[in-house]
Computed example of a mutant assay.
Amino acid sequence: MSQQTSQQAFVPLGDETRARLARCGAATLANALLKRGLRNAFLLGLHAVAPGQPTLIGPAWTLRFIPAREDKDSMALYERNDSLHRRAIEECPPGAVLVMSTGGDLSASCMGDMMALRLKVRGAAGVVTDGGYRDTPGIIATGLPCFQRAPSGPATPIALHPVEFNVPIGCAGVAIYPNDVIVGDGEGVVAIPRLLVDEIAAECGNISDYEAFVSMHIRRGRSIFGLFPATPESTQEYQRWVAAGRPALN
């Protein structure tokens, strides 16, 4: 079994950037990345374990699995402190999103409720996998935001062998590097390269604020023409509204 030691220093996410990302939808963030030429940032096919769970936001802490082999994988592995799976849970930093790559394998779970609870207690921001979890009701009860491809009940060693963590991985067809910022909401999960996250958060935060302005007018019966997408005139109107303290329509 590989004894991968984490090399990449974890970089926490700033409060202002986190707050801006919390106002942005995953689809909006993906569009902003597309404008910069990044076409493959949305982790397709993943679903929240619970409707209405909190938005998942945090830097990636990665774990990669390969297919299991009978001479190396058994439940006895999980009694050992050098299990890379257990180490990834115990070393995942507070505020991080654990991203686990299974190659889309659903024949065994990559996490259960006790691991999820441990991550929650340690302050992790959430978990993402292109595989599946077991004990889903227990995971939901922890309150930890989690995304998966589909639930999977069989124990991990049946099909999955952990080989390294805190390294670049592929998850749901998307390249994830340690410290990339993961955002997951009701639409899905997007990965933002760390060097771009501050400017993406600022841009998309402004878009979300403008859309709140648009939504207020549409609810009152206003046409989308000249309003959405934004025009120079509607942008000036929006800026006057912000300067006035964002008053509600009478």
Rank of each mutant, 00 (worst) to 15 (best):
L117R: 15
A76Q: 14
C110W: 03
K72D: 04
V128Y: 05
R39D: 02
R20Y: 08
I218E: 03
Y177L: 05
V167N: 05
S215A: 09
E16W: 04
A76V: 09
M111L: 11
A248N: 12
S6F: 03
S6T: 13
T62A: 00
T28I: 08
G25S: 11
I140C: 00
C204D: 05
D15H: 13
A108V: 04
L106F: 00
L249F: 14
R18E: 09
P154M: 13
V174Y: 06
S101N: 10
G138W: 04
L84Y: 01
K120I: 01
V99Q: 07
G104A: 08
L196N: 02
E211Y: 05
I200F: 02
L34R: 15
V163Y: 08
L44P: 06
L249H: 15
N81P: 10
R87N: 06
L195V: 11
H161N: 13
S6A: 09
R194V: 07
C110H: 06
S74Q: 11
G184P: 11
A155C: 12
L144N: 12
L144Y: 05
V128C: 07
Q7M: 10
A155Q: 15
G112R: 13
P229K: 01
I140A: 00
Q236H: 09
P154H: 13
V181T: 12
S208T: 14
A248R: 15
E237V: 03
F42A: 01
L21D: 14
T55W: 02
P229L: 01
I158E: 07
C24S: 15
L56P: 04
G132R: 13
A9P: 04
R18G: 08
V242I: 07
L227N: 07
G52T: 03
D180M: 08
Y238L: 03
T5N: 06
A150K: 15
N206K: 15
P93W: 00
M111K: 14
I192T: 10
R134S: 07
